[in-house]
Computed example of a mutant assay.
Amino acid sequence: MSYTVNTLRNMTRSCEMMRDRVKAVVFKPDERKVLNITFGPTAAAELVGRTPEALAKAEKEGRLAPPKQLNNGRRYYTLEDLTHIRKALNIHPGKLAHENAVVVAVQNFKGGVGKSTITKHFADFLALNGYSVLVIDCDPQASTTTMFDIQPEALIDEEETLGNFLSPRSTFDDFRKAIRETAWPTIKIVPSSLGLQDAEWDLTATLTEGGQAVREGLQRLRIGIDSIINDFDVVLLDPPPAMGFLGLNVMAAATGMLIPVPARQLDYLSTIHFMDTIAENIEILEDHGTPVDYGFIRVVCSAYTPSKPGEADMWKMMKATYANFLLNQPILASEEIKNATQAFRSIYESKPSAAHATYQRCRDNLNAVFGEVLNEIHEQWPSKSISRRSSDTAGSVAA
């Protein structure tokens, strides 16, 4: 074995050992992440869309089980309790059973813009608010997979993976087999694996076959998602940072796009190229019989520090440039997010790392941002769309 190979393998082993030591500290005494999230009566009521008094009344009437209590008498609810409450009170925040999930790609080619962090936090936000979520990690770097406590290298010998499903060497077998459980009861994930890069090469090879082979290669992820499209409210795609066949599969499968752009000049300029490339590749998809029509495209300013003059100026420029396509709320840079992700968590799974007020500001900011995206998602479902109901009302009045 050469010096270079031996050195790289030794470094890999050292990194794996340190990673396991870090996870042992973070998740102890369990090997896997366990959610330890509880809610007081006010927070629980807000999440299910009722008042604390309404929950107390339902409990008194026997429609709900009483909340758990600590030794000091404090009442609390778990994440599972919220699910039971919604079911018992017939609260359905998501779509109707026959409606399709909204498939959102969190997309930008540039690294360091927060794609995986946003995907993880958005998934947790949706789950907290009662939505059923499938996360599909399409990035061979597997950052989102790792944050959901799945080790990509553990899937190397697995046959039921996204990489195997996407490979043109396989048949269109059951996509469900690649779906894994997470610590969140209403979040499932199709993790990234080491074989995903092989699938990219296999898909690229279909170019030599042309015609139907290329068309199937571009649509494999869409076909897989179509097989489970009614089972979830939202499907979140974390794409690779480059536009190869994997990226084209993501674009073909998505029905909405969220584009993270930090308020920095280089990121702003690179996004110009990104959007032009996206448009060109959509034309390529359509030329190969794969029509693409997104219900919404929104830009979110990520990791924003308003106290920095340069970023404040860029925020103004972004508002002037993107206008109605830019979310009203930027994602503020926060040590809380950084500390949480270093512990393989979102802030929705974490306790405050500093002052509680700082943690709450960060959480409130994310809630506001994701609330805007959730409104866009609702507009894709006829049963939830405010604009469609308004239009129907106007039509009835006009009639």
Rank of each mutant, 00 (worst) to 15 (best):
S132M: 01
N339E: 10
I229T: 09
S132K: 12
G295W: 00
L332I: 06
D238T: 06
D173Q: 13
R176A: 12
E376R: 10
G247Y: 05
T277Q: 12
G40S: 09
N328H: 08
A355H: 06
V103E: 05
V397A: 10
I37D: 08
T119I: 08
K177E: 08
E31S: 14
L55G: 07
F175A: 08
N164K: 09
A101R: 06
G73A: 03
A323V: 08
F125Q: 03
S270H: 02
L326P: 12
I85K: 07
D30N: 15
Y304V: 05
S350Y: 04
K28S: 15
F39L: 13
A312I: 00
Y322D: 03
V34L: 14
E372L: 06
E99L: 09
A333L: 13
V106I: 15
D139G: 08
L8D: 03
G111K: 05
L155Y: 11
D174N: 15
I85S: 09
M257E: 05
E59D: 09
C301F: 00
E379K: 04
I284N: 06
E283L: 07
A43S: 14
E200S: 14
N108C: 04
E336G: 11
E200T: 03
K57E: 09
L218I: 07
D287N: 09
L266M: 13
A323M: 09
V5L: 12
Q197W: 02
V135D: 09
K110R: 10
L236N: 10
N328P: 01
V103H: 05
I282W: 01
A65M: 09
E209T: 07
P291S: 06
T206Q: 15
I85N: 08
L162A: 04
H84Y: 03
E286C: 08
L326N: 08
F172M: 14
P52T: 01
V299T: 06
D20V: 00
V22H: 13
D313G: 02
I272N: 13
K23A: 15
A253E: 02
D20G: 07
E286D: 06
R361N: 08
A44Q: 08
N10S: 10
D198G: 15
